[in-house]
Design a protein around this nucleic acid. Structure first.
Lengths: 351, 351
DNA sequence: TTGTACGCGTTATCAT
DNA sequence: ATGATAACGCGTACAA
């Protein structure tokens, strides 16, 4: 037995389909009498309102904004920065009344993906590797799109961060303290899960990683770089073990590209019997609160993650409503904690 | 100028619409030659594949699973338990290839809501207050639904947790230590944002809150209860201040219904000059890692949050594919930390 | 392998 | 305030 449609309801109520439609949409005034008849008919037929699929076909809007992550979806929830950004994004699209559809930038996605999901707009988180391809897909479909933390060309509004300049500040801070042997623990270089010493800057396809590294390189052109496979404490730990393994090459300062990585590096230092910051200084990036790191307070760069999300939400809202959205650049704030200090052997280094 | 449709492509390629459709869906073999012609035509017209809205109307599937939260959406991302659950849920629906649509159980939602979103299935987080109404909506629409942490009647598959028994365990632990004056800091009683001393258990509409309280009551029938307005450290702090304000009534142990609340209570204790656990014992619930709580390790109940999500995902997957899904009950694990001990004045209490 | 014909459930538009 | 009509863009059974 078929589900009742609005046509059935209309027939039952003795009105035209359009009238019945109007009763549900409320777009046009309807007399109390007919309204009552239609509602009664609906109730008696078990009709619960317009089918969203049909309505969205007709209207050309689905009320859904896609949020596209480069990585495994679960990972997005484990990263506090992404979490905060989503928080802001939910805020930002609220005026639209739209829902957020979590999508993965999956090349062979069998189900709801960028190509098959009914989106009114899309927000790409990052813009590298696959995401570049996703972007093409979305733009070909003519869907308004905003990119957070990535460069997608001039005609795509971009919510950015001064990654390079911010990381340069941290490096500069460390340099001023007197450090010369400095290592970088980088975020993933590409969409993959490779991990290890980075032989060559050129292989970086992830914008954030590249930008932050460039900032570090402005101060320490020859810093060794260990690439992590993700922004996790465990990855930082592994990186730290590698950094501290060889006593001769041991850095006196480590610039980690995320707070979670930094937390792991600190743990590795403890493991290796090194004190922070007396024996080794560590800086982070993001300015999130890292669990269980007390009594350390990371020297880090605080980024307005939630604000970024809100801005992205506002941008897509504007575009959906036919307007233009401008790119916005956010700025990090340097925050000195207690994880950086003069290098060992130079207690009186400049402050 | 209109966007090209599959009919335009077919005309351009000199084939019938159905043939063109088949080229994109791949449901039926097509000769290489026509296939090539169709693709070429599509390219020349800027056609990028079937419109998802139309396709989903026709197919009756959207590839979207709704996840309905009771609260402000942003809050969902700030709660580690929800976050972990989403993580598992993303996993659980992966075989379906479906996207997760974040929805808020909003009574007057203007946009994408339970009533207007094109869902193949829904997962309700909790089942109380509004959610009860949401459930009716969803079921009336005939959408498969699974409830996490809530009772929705026997015919709705439920992913549950032994909240009552688990909380009883914690209470029992505290009782065994010798505590008699015990207070409970509860999660919200209802969807609202009320906060304060709870006069009457009957007003609780949130299942989790009620169940956990019932478990505590099995051991301490007369415990005073402070209801928090949410699961946040700040709320726990406020609760703790209230609990410790009156010296005469001051509890020697506090059973908090979440780890975040417990963390706040501990802070309040420190504020009040009380030592944990020497002057006051505190237990949590959830078993998440709470930021900045070191050197404390909460005595708490660890719940398999991610597993719950995964199970929910598997359940909706089964239902969408026409099968049945059974309810599953998960179990918490008691974990003793260093935030509980004998009450003051009874150093030799039983262990 | 290809084409025909129809239905999916609404809603916008315009006339009454 | 109500109704008739025409899309909206596609999938699929069935016939050729």
């Amino acid at each position: 037995m078929r589900r009742a449609t609005i046509a059935d309801v209309a027939r039952e109520a003795g009105v035209s389909p359009s009238t019945a439609s109007v009763v549900f949409s409320g777009k046009t005034p309807v007399s109390e009498a007919t309204r009552g008849r239609v509602l009664a008919a609906a109730a008696s037929l078990g009709y619960t309102g317009p089918d969203p699929r049909a309505a969205s076909l007709r209207r050309g809007r689905s009320g859904i904004v896609g949020v596209v992550f480069e990585e495994y979806l679960g990972a997005a929830f484990l990263d506090p920065v992404k979490t905060l950004m989503m928080d802001g994004l939910a805020d930002g699209v609220a005026p639209l009344g739209a829902g957020l559809l979590l999508l993965r930038d999956d090349i062979a996605g069998s189900g709801a993906s960028l190509t098959t999901a009914p989106l009114d707009a899309a927000v790409l988180i990052g813009c590298s590797g696959h995401l570049r391809a996703s972007l093409d897909v979305v733009r070909a479909r003519g869907i308004p799109v905003v990119v957070v933390e990535g460069d997608a060309g001039d005609d795509v509004p971009r919510i950015g961060l001064d990654n390079r300049e911010a990381q340069r500040q941290a490096a500069s801070h460390v340099c001023t303290l007197g450090h010369r042997r400095v290592a970088v623990v980088a975020l993933p270089l590409s969409g993959g899960w490779e991990r290890g010493w980075m032989p060559d800057d050129a292989r970086i396809t992830v914008d954030v990683t590249r930008e932050r590294l460039a900032g570090a390189r402005e101060v320490f052109p020859d810093a060794r770089v260990w690439a992590a496979a993700g922004s996790f404490i465990a990855e930082g730990l592994e990186a730290g073990r590698a950094l501290f393994a060889d006593e001769a090459e041991r850095p006196t300062a480590v610039l980690a590209q995320s707070d979670l990585l930094a937390a792991g590096v600190i743990r590795a230092a403890e493991e290796a019997g090194l004190r922070v910051p007396e024996d080794v200084s560590v800086t982070g990036f993001d300015g999130i609160a890292v669990d269980g790191l007390a009594p350390y307070e990371l020297t880090t760069l605080h980024q307005p993650a939630a604000e970024k999300g809100r801005a992205a939400g506002r941008a897509v809202t504007a575009m959906i409503e036919g307007g233009q959205a401008a790119s916005i650049q956010f700025t990090c704030t340097f925050r000195e904690g207690n994880t950086t200090g003069p290098p060992p052997g130079e207690p009186g280094a400049a402050r």
